[in-house]
Design a protein around this nucleic acid. Structure first.
Length: 158
DNA sequence: GCCAACGTTGGC
DNA sequence: GCCAACGTTGGC
C-alpha cells in the first residue's frame, strides 16, 4: 500500500513552548503533551512517522506560522494525564485505558520570514483552511497537501 | 481586556 | 437527549 505523507498544524503559545524551545530541546525533539480535545487527539492518533507539521504560535502578537517539524514517534499515552499533581491531570484517563495521547515531533526548520495569520487571509489557495476559519480553536489541525504547498511557497521554501 | 466561538458538564 | 451554565481558547 502506497504511503502518503500527511500534513498537520500544531499550535502552541510561544510563552509556554516555542519553536526556539523545540530547536534547543534534546535531539531537537519533544513530546506534544497536554492535548485535551478529542478531535485534536484523533488527529494525533492518525499521525505517522515522517508526517510534516506546521508550527503555529498562538496568542502571539501577531500570531505566526513559524516553521516546520516532523513526526518522529507515533501516538502513545500522554502520561501527564495520570499524574494528579500535573496541570493537565485527567482522572478519566487511566493507565490501563488511556484517554489522551501524544506524539513526538522533531524540529525541521524555522521560517526566515514567519507568516502572520493576517497575511494568509485572502490568499486564494488557502481559502477554507481550518486555521483561517472564524472561531477556529483546534490546537491540532489537518492541512491539505495543496495548502501546505502554498504555505511553503509563501515562506520561501520551494 | 473584551468577547465570539466553541467543548464540556450536569441537572432534568 | 436537551440545553443552560460554565470554562477555555485565542484573535483583536
Amino acid at each position: 500500500m502506497a504511503k502518503t505523507r500527511q500534513y498537520w498544524l500544531m499550535k502552541s503559545e510561544p510563552s509556554a513552548f516555542s519553536i526556539q524551545d523545540l530547536r534547543k530541546a534534546r535531539g531537537r525533539t519533544t513530546c506534544w503533551d497536554g492535548v485535551r480535545n478529542y478531535q485534536a487527539r484523533n488527529y494525533m492518533r492518525a499521525m505517522k512517522r515522517g508526517d510534516r507539521v506546521l508550527l503555529y504560535h498562538s496568542s502571539a502578537d501577531p500570531p505566526l506560522l513559524v516553521g516546520v517539524a516532523e513526526v518522529v514517534r507515533e501516538a502513545y499515552p500522554d502520561h501527564t494525564a495520570f499524574d494528579p499533581k500535573h496541570k493537565h491531570h485527567d482522572p478519566k484517563s487511566r493507565r490501563d485505558s488511556p484517554t489522551w495521547f501524544m506524539v513526538d515531533i522533531r524540529f525541521s526548520a524555522e521560517f526566515k520570514k514567519p507568516l502572520a495569520l493576517d497575511s494568509l487571509r485572502g490568499v486564494p489557495g488557502l481559502r477554507g483552511m481550518e486555521l483561517l476559519r472564524k472561531g477556529s480553536r483546534l490546537s491540532v489541525q489537518s492541512v491539505r497537501r495543496d495548502e501546505w504547498a502554498v504555505i511553503m511557497e509563501l515562506a520561501g521554501r520551494h
